[in-house]
Simulated assay, not measured.
Amino acid sequence: MCIGIPGQVITLDETSPGNAWVDVCGVKRRVNVRLVCADAAAMTALPGQWVLVHVGFAMSLLDESEAKETLDALRQMGEMEPDVGLFLQGGESHAVR
């Protein structure tokens, strides 16, 4: 299953240009943000914004209400789908499909 999950940008990663630290369900992850930032000005405005994250890349910007609605939907899915629940808790699934 491929899931994009909302996360809030905490700060830019000063040691790795083009990356930022993003809070994804309480877990801080380094995420490449070059796909959502057209230039340096957009990059500096990123902290505090919400992004949709998939496999270490920010795929798009989200507004806060859209991010929270998506997180709520994923939490509801996590009650029925063990893989989603593990992902939201920062774990990994090792299920063979």
Rank of each mutant, 00 (worst) to 15 (best):
Met1Gln: 11
Cys2Phe: 14
Cys2Leu: 14
Cys2Ile: 13
Ile3Ala: 13
Ile5Trp: 06
Ile5Cys: 05
Ile5Val: 15
Pro6Cys: 09
Pro6Glu: 09
Pro6Asn: 08
Pro6Ala: 10
Gly7Trp: 04
Gly7Gln: 05
Gly7Met: 03
Gln8Ser: 09
Gln8Ala: 10
Val9Leu: 07
Thr11Lys: 14
Leu12His: 07
Leu12Ile: 15
Leu12Val: 11
Asp13Val: 06
Glu14Lys: 09
Glu14Thr: 06
Thr15Phe: 10
Thr15Arg: 12
Gly18Ala: 05
Asn19His: 15
Asn19Lys: 14
Ala20Pro: 01
Val22Lys: 04
Val22Gln: 06
Val22Ala: 11
Val22Arg: 04
Asp23Trp: 03
Asp23Gly: 06
Val24Glu: 12
Cys25Asn: 14
Cys25Gly: 08
Gly26Trp: 06
Val27Thr: 14
Lys28Arg: 12
Lys28Phe: 02
Arg29Ser: 10
Arg29Gly: 01
Val31Lys: 03
Asn32Lys: 05
Val33Trp: 03
Val33Tyr: 10
Arg34Glu: 15
Arg34Gln: 14
Leu35Met: 12
Val36Phe: 07
Cys37Glu: 07
Ala38Glu: 15
Ala38Cys: 03
Ala38Tyr: 04
Ala40Thr: 00
Ala40Lys: 13
Ala41Gly: 03
Ala41Tyr: 03
Ala41Lys: 11
Ala42Met: 03
Ala42Cys: 03
Thr44His: 11
Ala45Phe: 04
Leu46Ala: 10
Leu46Tyr: 06
Leu46Val: 00
Leu46Trp: 05
Pro47Glu: 13
Gly48Met: 11
Gly48Arg: 09
Gln49His: 12
Trp50Cys: 08
Val51Glu: 04
Val51His: 02
Val51Asn: 02
His54Ile: 01
His54Tyr: 07
His54Ser: 12
Gly56Lys: 06
Gly56Asp: 07
Phe57Ile: 07
Ala58Asn: 08
Ala58Tyr: 05
Leu61His: 06
Leu61Gly: 01
Leu62Arg: 03
Asp63Cys: 09
Ser65Asn: 10
Ser65Val: 12
Ser65Ala: 15
Ala67Cys: 02
Lys68Ala: 09
Lys68Gln: 14
Glu69Asp: 15
Thr70Ile: 07
Leu71His: 00
Leu71Asp: 11
Asp72Tyr: 08
Ala73Thr: 11
Leu74Asn: 08
Leu74Tyr: 14
Leu74Pro: 00
Leu74Cys: 03
Arg75Cys: 02
Met77Trp: 04
Gly78Asn: 07
Glu79Trp: 01
Glu79Tyr: 08
Met80Cys: 09
Met80Arg: 13
Met80Leu: 14
Met80Ile: 10
Glu81Val: 15
Glu81Asp: 15
Pro82Val: 02
Pro82Gly: 01
Pro82Tyr: 01
Asp83His: 09
Asp83Cys: 07
Val84Asn: 08
Val84Arg: 08
Leu86Thr: 02
Leu88Arg: 04
Leu88Ser: 04
Gln89Lys: 15
Gln89Ser: 15
Gly91Trp: 11
Ser93Met: 04
Ser93Asn: 10
Ser93Ile: 02
His94Lys: 07
His94Phe: 07
His94Thr: 09
Ala95Thr: 00
Ala95Phe: 08
Arg97Leu: 11
